[in-house]
């Protein structure tokens, strides 16, 4: 059911954009207004979400401890898996953000002739890292359409990405990797019964959306050619805040833009916020100093004490009169 809903939603966006993009009066809406609005929602929504997270107190250190804590000097500690210093935390965060280390640690458990075996399982890590880096490079390559003069690193990426010079225009390696990895991640949800059981529309929708973005991009490059100069004029216009909508850009371009806009607008309200979340995760970004330092509750205010000595001072005369024993005369 979730699959049908998500796929239907993506297809509906594509149909609306296809029709809207083919009516020249509506092109400023789909080419300018929608992208600007989506990008604004993305930036504001992202920051609000992060600030909201930052308002949650983390009174205690709760890092995941996947190794030996620092203890006696002759016991070897796990500096990355159970960091006790800022350097260790930076190392752990670096490996997490750039190498997806926690996915790399993935294991699978299965029964083999009555015994429970744990074995490493790297497929999720492989598709995830392939997808993320391909997406990063594709996004950077798209800068050639947004800015002029084109920065050198964008041209270098472009040349390296299309280095095999297969076909005209050349096939980018990251395009293949992107579509392949997203398809694999989708197949994982569709065909692994354990994963499918826990999958929701919020899991399928981003995958269909990304697949739609990749496929419309490839179609635009290889099948339904669009005038790249007009595309750049529009994109460069958006970036310069003086947008113009040139004539005769094919509808397929507006479908691509609508899907990317949807991704931007949907981003802050979805699981995709793990982009910001990975940095905000207290199980990753805190050093395990639970025992070496005293961590005070941030909202801790010392209560007002009324000691017995003060009580006695207050009622000394009355107590003396009643013949009660006093600690101090």
């Amino acid at each position: 059911m979730g699959i049908i809903v998500s796929l239907g939603a993506v297809l509906a966006i594509m149909v609306v954009a296809w029709i809207g993009g083919s009516i020249s009066g509506l092109q400023p809406i789909f080419g300018v207004l929608v992208p600007y609005a989506a990008f604004a929602v993305f930036l504001v929504g992202f920051c609000r979400k992060v600030v909201d997270w930052a308002k949650s107190p983390v009174p205690f250190r709760i890092p995941t401890t996947a190794g030996q804590e620092v203890s006696l000097p002759w016991i070897k500690s796990a500096k990355l898996d159970n960091p006790s210093t800022t350097a260790g935390v930076i190392g752990r965060m670096f490996l997490e953000v750039f190498c997806f280390r926690s996915l790399f640690r993935n294991t699978r458990a299965d029964l083999r002739s009555g015994y429970l075996y744990y074995s490493p399982s790297k497929w999720l890590w492989l598709f995830a890292i392939g997808f993320h880096y391909a997406f990063l490079i594709i996004a950077l390559r798209h800068l050639r359409l947004f800015v002029h003069p084109i920065p050198g690193f964008v041209e270098t990426l472009d040349a390296v990405d299309g280095m095999f010079q297969i076909g005209i225009p050349p096939i980018y390696l990251t395009d293949l990797l992107f579509v392949g990895a997203v398809t694999a991640l989708l197949c994982r949800r569709l065909f692994l019964s354990k994963v499918r059981f826990i999958s929701l529309p919020a899991d399928y929708f981003p995958l269909f959306l990304l697949l739609g973005i990749g496929i419309t991009g490839l179609l635009m490059r290889f099948v339904f050619r669009v005038d790249i100069v007009s595309v750049k004029q529009l994109a460069n216009g958006l970036a310069s805040l003086h947008p113009t909508v040139p004539d005769n850009i094919g509808s397929i371009f507006f479908v691509h833009v609508a899907l990317v806009s949807t991704l931007f607008a949907y981003f802050p309200f979805s699981k995709l916020m793990h982009m910001g979340g990975v940095f905000m995760s207290p199980t990753r970004n805190l050093a395990n100093t639970n025992r070496m330092e005293r961590h005070e509750n941030p909202w801790w205010t010392p209560p007002k004490f009324h000691t017995y000595a003060e009580y006695e001072d207050m009622y000394r005369d009355l107590m003396k009169e009643a013949g009660l024993p006093l600690e101090r005369e």
């Binding site: 993305f42 800015v147 002029h148 004029q233 460069n236 970036a239």
Partner: peptide, 17 residues
């Protein structure tokens, strides 16, 4: 984060080629 994502805007400095 905002600086990276608005690269195209501040690099273009308001004038389209």
């Amino acid at each position: 984060f905002v600086g990276i994502f608005t690269f195209a805007f501040w690099y273009t400095t308001g004038t389209a080629a």
